[in-house]
Simulated scan of single mutants.
Amino acid sequence: MPASEASAEAIAARLSALGLTTRVEEHNRDTSIEAEVPESLSAESWREALEVVAEADRFGLLATSLNDRTLWAVVRKTVPTTSDVDGPGHQR
């Protein structure tokens, strides 16, 4: 099993262990994990959930005016090589 797949599965499992319902979706370049966050989630569980998603390559929280909250994380399947990285200091 690739390390990225194991990482995504571990994040989903740890969020599930906190009592959150998770969804995992495979994409070409990454795997996304989403978890619905109930209003009743304790502050301690929030901290744990944030520690879990911080292990991903990207993470965030989507909140709506209807009090729906979705915690999300993305794990890249491949690590970009130097030639794949663009930015202000990028040189060829």
Rank of each mutant, 00 (worst) to 15 (best):
E25W: 06
L18G: 02
N28F: 15
D30L: 13
E34K: 09
R14F: 01
T21N: 13
S4A: 13
V52Q: 10
A6I: 12
D30N: 13
W72K: 11
I11S: 03
R69E: 09
T70G: 04
R14E: 04
S7I: 02
T81D: 15
V52K: 09
T21D: 08
S65R: 09
E36N: 06
V53R: 13
P88F: 10
T31R: 09
T81Y: 11
T81I: 09
H90E: 11
T82A: 11
A43G: 05
T78W: 07
V74A: 11
T82F: 14
A6Y: 10
I33H: 11
I33F: 14
T22M: 11
G19V: 06
W72C: 03
S16L: 01
D68S: 12
T70R: 05
M1F: 10
T22E: 09
L15N: 02
V24R: 12
W72N: 01
S45Q: 07
A35G: 11
R29F: 14
G19D: 04
A56Q: 07
D86I: 12
V75L: 05
L20E: 02
R29S: 14
A63K: 08
S42W: 08
T22N: 06
K77E: 09
R92C: 09
A35C: 10
E26L: 08
L50S: 00
T64E: 12
A56V: 05
A3Y: 04
A54I: 00
T64S: 15
A17P: 05
R76T: 01
D84F: 00
P38K: 03
R76C: 03
P2D: 15
V74W: 02
L66T: 11
S42L: 07
R76Q: 15
T31Q: 13
P88L: 15
L61R: 04
A12F: 01
R47G: 10
S40T: 13
S42F: 00
P88D: 07
H27G: 06
A17N: 11
R29D: 14
T22H: 06
A56D: 05
A13E: 06
A3F: 13
L18R: 01
V52A: 11
E34Q: 15
R92T: 00
W46N: 05
S32Y: 09
F59S: 12
E5F: 10
K77H: 14
A17R: 08
K77Q: 15
A13L: 02
A12E: 02
R29L: 15
D84K: 04
P88E: 13
D68W: 07
E9H: 01
R69N: 07
R23L: 08
T21I: 00
S83W: 10
V37S: 01
R58D: 12
R29M: 09
L66N: 05
T64C: 01
T31G: 12
S83P: 01
E44D: 05
A13R: 08
A35T: 12
P80I: 09
T31P: 05
T78V: 12
I33Y: 03
E25I: 13
L15R: 01
A54R: 15
S4I: 03
S7T: 08
G89Y: 03
T31H: 06
V37D: 03
E39W: 00
G60I: 09
G89W: 07
T31V: 09
L61T: 08
P38Q: 03
S7W: 00
T78E: 15
G89K: 14
S42R: 05
V24Q: 10
E51C: 14
E26T: 00
S16R: 01
V53A: 06
